[in-house]
Design a protein around this nucleic acid. Structure first.
Lengths: 111, 111
DNA sequence: ATATATACATAATACTCTTATGTATAACAA
DNA sequence: TTGTTATACATAAGAGTATTATGTATATAT
C-alpha cells in the first residue's frame, strides 16, 4: 500500500477499525473506503489485503459470510466478539504510536 | 522495536529526524533518546539500528566519524547535505501518514 | 565476583508488503 | 463488438524490515 513504507504493520489495525466503524464489509470495499478517507493516499494492495483477511479470520478475530451480488462473489467480513475486544487494544496501541510519532516529528509541542 | 508492529517502516525516518534535531549522535545514543522521548515505548533494537545506520550511510544520507570516548568506540553520525534534503521529504510523508492514521482512528474529527 | 550499562556488529529467522499473475463478471467507450 | 476499466476474489515469488540470538569489549555498580 502506498509508495511509502510507513503503513507497514498497521494494515491489520486499519482493517479492524474499518470493520468496527462499518459493521460488515467485503475486501474490495475495504480498499475503496481506505482510499476514500485518506483522499487517495492509502492504496491497500490485494496482495496485502486478502492474506491479511485470511489471517485475521484464522485467528478468530473475523467472521466471514459469502454472498453473490450482481452475479459476483463477495466475502463479507465482520468482527467476532474476540475481534471486537482486540480492536480496542490495537486502537489504543495505535493512538499511543501516533502520539509518539508526533512527539518525534515535533518535539517542541510535547511540553 | 517495541512489541507492536506499528513502528515497522518508520525507523529510518525516526533516525533522520533525531539527527536533524540533535546534529550529531552515535547509535547507542539514538536508542536512548528514542526511549526517552517516547517514555519507554519505543525500544530500537540493535539488530534493527545498526544495519539501518549502515544503509543510510551507504545511500550517502549520513556521514560517520569514529571517536574513542572513555576507551570505548563511538560512531557519530550526522546528516549529509543530501540527507538533510531527504529528511524534509520523509517528514512530510510521515506527517501525512500520521494525519491519515488519525482520520482512520477517529473519522468523526475529520470534517 | 557478578550483573548491568555502554558500544559496536552480524547471521538466521520471521513477518509484512509489493509485484506479478490468474480467474471471472459487469459496465462503458470506441 | 472489441477493448478498457471497474468489480471481486486469490496466490506465489521476491523484496524489505525488524526480531532474536549471538559475539566482542570496556566501565560501573553491587
Amino acid at each position: 500500500m502506498k509508495n511509502s513504507q510507513l503503513y507497514k504493520g498497521s494494515l491489520n489495525t486499519i482493517i479492524m477499525k474499518l470493520l468496527e466503524e462499518n459493521g460488515r464489509m467485503y475486501g474490495y470495499e475495504i480498499t475503496q473506503k481506505a482510499k476514500e478517507i485518506t483522499k487517495g493516499e492509502l492504496n491497500i494492495t490485494e496482495g496485502a489485503l486478502y492474506p491479511a483477511l485470511h489471517k485475521l479470520e484464522a485467528e478468530d478475530l473475523l467472521d466471514v459470510e459469502v454472498e453473490r451480488v450482481d452475479n459476483r462473489l463477495r466475502k463479507y467480513y465482520k468482527l467476532t466478539e474476540k475481534g471486537t475486544k482486540e480492536t480496542v487494544n490495537r486502537l489504543s496501541e495505535l493512538e499511543e504510536f501516533i502520539k509518539n510519532m508526533q512527539t518525534i516529528v515535533n518535539p517542541k509541542l510535547s511540553y
